[in-house]
Write a protein that binds this DNA or RNA. Structure first.
Lengths: 212, 212
DNA sequence: GAGATATGACTGACCAGATAGTCATAACTC
DNA sequence: GAGTTATGACTATCTGGTCAGTCATATCTC
C-alpha cells in the first residue's frame, strides 16, 4: 500500500506472517473437509496449524471468513491448471482431451485440491458467495475451455460430438463423479478412475457425428 | 408388515403413529437438506413436523438415528423406480435410456427424492453406514441395471458404446451433475437438464462402436 | 554494544449463547 | 382411572469468539 520502498523482508517475530496464514489455511482445509463447516472446530484448526485459537482471529474475521479464504486461496492454483490446458491448444482434439483428464487425475484428484472442490460441492449451497465465486472463477472458465475445444474440433473436422459445444458439462460430469465416489463409495466398490476416463475419452472421440 | 388383517384404519390418539413418524421424517429431510446434519436443529424439525421435541425421541433414538432412517426410508421409493425401469426391458435400448432419463427428471430431480440423494452425497462421508447402505441399495443396483442394458444391447447389436458395460457410471454421471448443479450454480447459470440429457442420449446412442 | 524501554504478535482461560437430549407432568384413550 | 403417549422446561455440554496479559524482538539511550 504505502511503503513502496520496503525491499527487505527481514525475518519478523516468530514466523513469517504469510507462513502462519498458510498454515492456518491448510489446517482449516483439512479440518473443514473432514468434518464439514458446521462441525469443524476452530480449536482443531488451531491445534493442527500449531497456533493458539486467538491467532486465527488475527488473520481472519471469523469462521466463515476463514472458510471463504480457504476456497478463494485454493482457486488460484486450479485456475493455473486450467490456463495450462488452453496453452496446449494446438494439439489434436483427442490428445487435448486426454491431457485434461490426466491433469484432473494427477493435479486435482491426487492432491488436496480435490478437498476444495468437494467442500464447494458439499457446503456451497449454504454459502452462496462461495458458490458464485467458484462458479465464476473455476466452473465457467473450465466449461468455456471445453467449449472452445469443441468449436475448434468442429472447424478442423475432428471427432467430437457436436452436442459438447452446447453442453461441455458432459465432458466434466465423469470427473465430478470420480471426485464424489472417492471417499464415499470407493471403500465398498473401488473405481478405476483412469480406466473410466479412458472409456469416456473413447466414447467422446469415437463419435461419428462430425467425420472428417 | 405383520398386521395383515387390519382393514379399519380408525382414528387413533391424535394421529396415527405412523403418520407422526412420517411427519417427522419428512420435516427432518427438509431441515437436514437445508442446513446440513450438524447445523440442523431438532427444534426446527419438531416445529416443522408439528410435534414437541420430546416426541422425536419417542420415535427415534437420537439425531443420527433420525438421519439414518430418513435416508433408509426414502431409499425404498427410489428402488421402486429402479424396478420400474427393468420392467421396461423389452424396449429398444435407446428408448430404455430415454425412459431412465425421464424418470430421473420427473421422479427424482423434480421431487423431494433429490434431497435425499444430495444429503447422501454431502454428508455421506461422515456417515459410513449411510454411504454403505445407499451404495448397496441404490447405487450398485442402478449400475447393475445399466450394465444389464448394455449387455443386452451388445447381444442385440443395438447402438451403445461397449465401454458402458464396464463403466455404467458414465451413463449416470450427467444426472449427478444435474443434481448438484441445481441449487448450487443454477442461480448463476441455469442448466437445461432435459436438453443436456437429450444431448447425452444422442452421444451414447450414436456411437459407431457396435453397429447393427 | 549493553542495558533499558517499547512494541505488537501471540496466547489461552474465559464467557455467552446455543442445542442435544431428559424427564416430571399433562393430556388423552379406552 | 390405568395405562399410554405427548409436552416443553430444564440441564449439561460444547464451542465461537474475546481480551488481558506475556514475551520475543526491535528500537532507543548512553
Amino acid at each position: 500500500m504505502t511503503g513502496t520502498m520496503a525491499p527487505a523482508p527481514k525475518k519478523r517475530r516468530k514466523a513469517e506472517p504469510e507462513e502462519r496464514r498458510q498454515a492456518i489455511l491448510s489446517a482449516g482445509l483439512s479440518v473443514f473437509a473432514a468434518d464439514g463447516f458446521a462441525a469443524a472446530k476452530l480449536d482443531d484448526v488451531a491445534a493442527k496449524a500449531g497456533v493458539a485459537k486467538g491467532t486465527i482471529y488475527l488473520y481472519f474475521g471469523d469462521k466463515e471468513d476463514l472458510f471463504e479464504q480457504i476456497v478463494r486461496d485454493a482457486a488460484a492454483p486450479v485456475l493455473d491448471q486450467l490456463q495450462g490446458m488452453v496453452a496446449l491448444s494446438d494439439l489434436p482434439t483427442a490428445a487435448l482431451l486426454a491431457k485434461i483428464f490426466e491433469v484432473f487425475r494427477t493435479q486435482i484428484l491426487a492432491t488436496d485440491r480435490k478437498l476444495v472442490t468437494k467442500l464447494v460441492l458439499t457446503e456451497g449451497t449454504r454459502f452462496p458467495k462461495i458458490a458464485e465465486f467458484y462458479h465464476a472463477e473455476v466452473i465457467s472458465k473450465g466449461l468455456a475451455i471445453i467449449q472452445k475445444i469443441a468449436r475448434r474440433a468442429a472447424e478442423r473436422g475432428e471427432q467430437l460430438p457436436s452436442e459438447i459445444e452446447h453442453f461441455p458439462h458432459l465432458v466434466f460430469a465423469p470427473m465430478l463423479l470420480a471426485l464424489l465416489w472417492d471417499g464415499l463409495f470407493s471403500k465398498f466398490e473401488p473405481l478405476d478412475v483412469e480406466q473410466m476416463l479412458s472409456a469416456h475419452h473413447k466414447i467422446l472421440t469415437a463419435s461419428p457425428l462430425l467425420k472428417r
